[in-house]
Structure formats: structure tokens, C-alpha cells
Amino acid sequence: MLLEFWDAIKLLSNLDSGLAEIVLLTIYVSGSAVLLAALLGIPAGTWLGMQKQGKVKGLTRLVYTLMGLPPVVGGLIIYLLIRRQGLLGTFGFLYTPTAMIMAQFLLATPIVIGMTSVAVRSKGKNIHETLVSLGARKGLILRSIIWEARYGILGAVIAGFGRVVAEVGAVMMVGGNIEGKTRVMTTTIVLETRKGNFDFALALGLILLIVSFIFNVILYQIQQGGASDDE
């Protein structure tokens, strides 16, 4: 089997453009979903983290619960919205990358909100009090708190990406795994496994890990670059 594994890697290295297309689509879909989730989730999470804990207890629990939303349920919700008889049926989103981004956005956003709020709550308390006592304006306070909590927030974004890039239930459902249009890495792995090409599927899994690794390295670099200013 080790030999098969090696063969599969060799197979991957001289594969046609199909594989590159799949990898690029994976990055495009999950990257867009996480970017949108960050745009909504970081402000929302910061707001949630700055509220008095007792006041937002229910909301916090709701967000934490949604962090565990099964991908296939997220996919089902989006599917029901965008199918022909659905509320957004007229736009024809079903079986397009847009539909996949919508589903993954739904999965990533609670994670970004939840983890951001935790980071803000643990980091923001002291600085908030200090800045208020110094008479700082609200905008400055907000920016300072986000800056102080940046490691936690970055972790939130990484966790969000990790969740969506690895999930298969939602993208399979709303994307349909169409060759050349909506086929991403995880759905390819499921397909190849069902065909019985286990070695090929395993090698694809390794590539997925590498993609995830590169994404983390880049984010880590950004974080390091920002941190060198004041450390």
C-alpha cells in the first residue's frame, strides 16, 4: 500500500489542469466564505465581547451552539432557500460556487463571532477601563481593543477556514460536485473513495492538508509582521 501511496503522489504531480482547477476553486470558495465571515463576524464578535456578560448570556449561548451546526444542516438551509421553489429561487444560485460560498459563510460566521468575542472579552477588559479613565474617544477604544485581541481574532479566522475547507456535506448538497464547475477537494475525495480509488483519495487529502498549511503560514506571517511594530 505504501507503494500505491507513492504512485498516487506521482500521479498527482503530473496530473492535468483538472486538479489545479479543483484546488483553485477550493481556495476561492473557502477563502471568500471566510473573508465574508470575518467582515461580519469580527465586528459582531467584538461588540458581543464588549457587552456585560449577563446582558448577552442568551445570545452568547446561541452563537456557541451555532458553532456546532452540522455542515449538512447548514447546506440544507441554504438549499431550501435557493432551490427553484425557495425564497431566492429566481436567482439560480443552486449548483454554483456562489451557493457553496453562502453555505460555508453560514458555517464559518458563528465560529468567527464566538472566538472573537472570547478574545475581546479576555483582552479588552483592562485596556477598556484604562482608556476610559484617560478619556479616550470611542473609536480609539474600539481600535485598541481589536488590536490587543488580534491574536485571538486571527485564531478565529484560522479556525473558520479550517472548518469550511474540510467540510463536505454542505458543498456537496448545494454545489452538486459538478466537474469543472463546483467540484472541490473534499467532494473529489468523497467521489474517489466511492469509486474505490483509495490511494488517490488519500493523496488528495494530503494536498488538502498542504493547502491548509500554506494558508496558516501566510496568516502567521501577517500576524508576525504586525506584531514586530511594538514588540
Partner: peptide, 18 residues
């Protein structure tokens, strides 16, 4: 020619939708 890599049930739903 839509090459979907899904099961029979999902394929039927897709044909229905499309």
C-alpha cells in the same frame, strides 16, 4: 452534459432543479 459526482437521489434532485 453535466458531470455531477453524486448519488442517484442527488442526481434526480439536480435534474429536477435544472
Amino acid at each position: 452534459y453535466v458531470n455531477a459526482g453524486v448519488g442517484m437521489g442527488d442526481t434526480l434532485v439536480m435534474a429536477d432543479e435544472k
